[in-house]
């Protein structure tokens, strides 16, 4: 009865509804995009009415918001942070730099395509995306969660070797703890 498929479906719907309306964001301020978050959170745009709230540590966070360009040096830290987060977890790539490098397309130490290194659920394009765009990105993420399609963590675990190979390609000196240490 408990492990019945239909009852599991109902449980999934309820859980996804809760996940959808309670999004705790770890805003990893890698680049210039971090400046767009205070207006998103404060009284003009008020993301908290959608259940979007800041989280202080990766252990409590649901969404890793990568705001802007990622140098190879920050990518190392982002990977560490991402692996410390608890399942289910989502990644939101924020700004052009995470999509195709943006204005740092020919930089010698900035990665260009984020989803080769971490499973990205939603991209928000723009340079910079305005708070409206950020909110619409969160709305898109909520849609995906409700449909049960935001399973980046599962994808990451299943294809961990592929992601690791990509990560190790640009981080040659790999001294990192194990997954979810």
């Amino acid at each position: 009865m408990i492990n019945d498929k239909n009852s599991q479906k109902i449980v999934d719907i309820i859980q996804n509804w809760a996940r959808q309306h309670s999004i705790w964001v770890l805003a990893y301020g890698t680049g210039c995009g971090a400046i767009e978050l205070p207006p998103t959170m404060t009284s003009r745009y008020d993301a908290e009415r959608l259940g979007v709230r800041g989280a202080a540590t990766p252990r409590q966070a649901d969404v890793l918001l990568i705001t802007g360009y990622l140098t190879t040096k920050t990518l190392k830290r982002v990977i560490r942070v991402y692996e410390q987060m608890q399942d289910p977890k989502y990644v939101v790539g924020f700004g052009s730099c995470t999509i195709n490098g943006g204005m740092y397309y020919d930089s010698y130490n900035t990665i260009k395509v984020l989803d080769k290194y971490l499973p990205v659920d939603v991209y928000i394009n723009g340079c910079m995306p305005r708070p409206e765009a950020v909110l619409s990105g969160f709305a898109k993420l909520q849609e995906r969660i409700a449909e049960g399609r935001a399973e980046g963590a599962k994808k990451y675990k299943e294809n961990l070797e592929w992601y690791r190979a990509n990560q190790k390609k640009i981080i040659p000196n790999w001294v990192m703890p194990d997954y979810n240490w």
Partner: peptide, 21 residues
């Protein structure tokens, strides 16, 4: 990397993935 004979664009194309446009 700041030497002028270091080609950053070629280095970036070689090292990092590129999204096909």
């Amino acid at each position: 990397p700041y030497r002028r004979d270091f080609d950053t664009a070629a280095f970036a194309a070689e090292t990092f993935f590129e999204r096909p446009g």
